[in-house]
Amino acid sequence: MEDKDKKETENINYDPSQDMVLTRHGFVKGKEKSFLQNPKDKPFIGIIGIPPKAVMEDLIKKNAIILSLDMYKVDQLITEPTENILPKAYCAQIKRIIANILAATDYWTEDVVDSVLVGRNPISEIIIEDSEISRCNEMGFVADFIENELKIKLTRVKNNDLERKGDFICKSGIPLDDKFGQIAGYFYRDIEKKKPFRPEYVKPKCAFWGTPPWGDFSLASYFPDETHIYGWTRCVENLTPGDLKLELEFDPDIPTVFFAQSFCPKAGLASYLASKHPRGIFIDMDLGLTRSTVAKLTAFLQLNGVVV
């Protein structure tokens, strides 16, 4: 009985948005993340960005455990590990990646880092997507940091994949946060030759353009299920993260939120496209959602008749 009560309390307190980790199995939540205590006979590889398909297929062949260093989060330490490395006013996602690398490479001791990786092998290699245009053009700096500061094998790769696989998830009616998770999962499902997830098309009430809101996925909860996704996230579902032509597309007939990480070069693109869209708004986020950002977003959705 006590155990049941304890379990229920844990469930009430559990906030999946704080714990979501992207792995080759898609998002891993809560206790499931213990699988990251990886078997000692498998290579443990960190990836940053979206490496090309050929690189990922090679990792699958090697039975590698793959950890996305974009997603694994040591949020409470995001500023502390990076404060002597990066300026304070800097992209929080880059800070997060650096903090994740430091955590995942045991640079910080386990008692300091709230690591989900206790008991694992140390990460043996980091593969970084260092394309000129893709998710982020700060990746070169991150690569320099890995090379200069950490004794760990680094592989720079460029993703020039341009064969579009479709955007079924982006244009479906599943909740927006599930869309982000499924798109991440789709990336791995395709590589593992599993049956793709193809939910039905839904007529949109509004659209979200941009990268996933890594800093705080609760942003997605303000959108209706009938939200289509555009921008870089759509490129990821297409398995073409460097497809700038696709990234620039939007639907001028539906109200669209153009989202970017604060201090990210993509914020310039998001802001520009928002100004071109007849019913567009630009929203950025630093470490997490603020009350003002939520108010701005909800007012936009309400005034456009997207939500009541």
Binding site: S262, P278, R279, I281, F282, D286, T290, S292, T293, A295, K296, A299, F300, L303, N304
Partner: peptide, 22 residues
């Protein structure tokens, strides 16, 4: 602390924005 605006055309809401923090 901040500035915000709304634009209406022919009685319909068209656009708004809010410079929240930075």
């Amino acid at each position: 602390r901040d500035a915000k605006y709304v634009i209406f055309e022919n009685g319909n809401f068209i656009h708004s924005d809010w410079n929240t923090e930075c």
